[in-house]
């Protein structure tokens, strides 16, 4: 399990990635996160919805209502053009972060 502190800056990126696949709603997204991370990261409900709210405010995603098969109305989210640009920027940022942080990580392979 990853601590939510570490991953905080990248929740938006994770959600945007999943919305790039298809429009989705809260539970489906959190389930996909669990699946793709092999159960190593479980996003909390409050984290997920704070992120939705933030992304909506910035115009990176948009929401719409959709009836589910068993009649329940759910809020679905869609990524926008600017959301896509932001996502790409975050990807580049991550590459850079990874590179920098890696410099300070003790790699067992290098010791050999």
């Amino acid at each position: 399990m990853i601590s939510s502190d570490v991953i905080r800056g990248y929740n938006d990126t994770i959600i945007l990635y999943l919305l790039l696949e298809k429009a989705s709603y809260g539970y489906e997204i959190s389930k996909r996160i669990k699946e793709l991370s092999d159960g190593k990261y479980v996003i909390k409900e409050t984290t997920l919805y704070s992120a939705f709210n933030r992304l909506l405010k910035k115009g990176y995603i948009e929401s719409f209502h959709k009836e589910q098969t068993f009649g329940k109305k759910r809020t679905y989210y869609n990524i926008t053009e600017t959301g896509l640009l932001y996502y790409q920027e975050k990807c580049r940022e991550w590459e850079l972060t990874k590179e920098v942080i890696n410099q300070f990580i003790y790699h067992s392979a290098e010791r050999q």
Partner: peptide, 13 residues
Amino acid sequence: AEFGNMDEIMEAY
């Protein structure tokens, strides 16, 4: 356990 913390919501909203 997977609900989270209300403070996050209050901050975001």
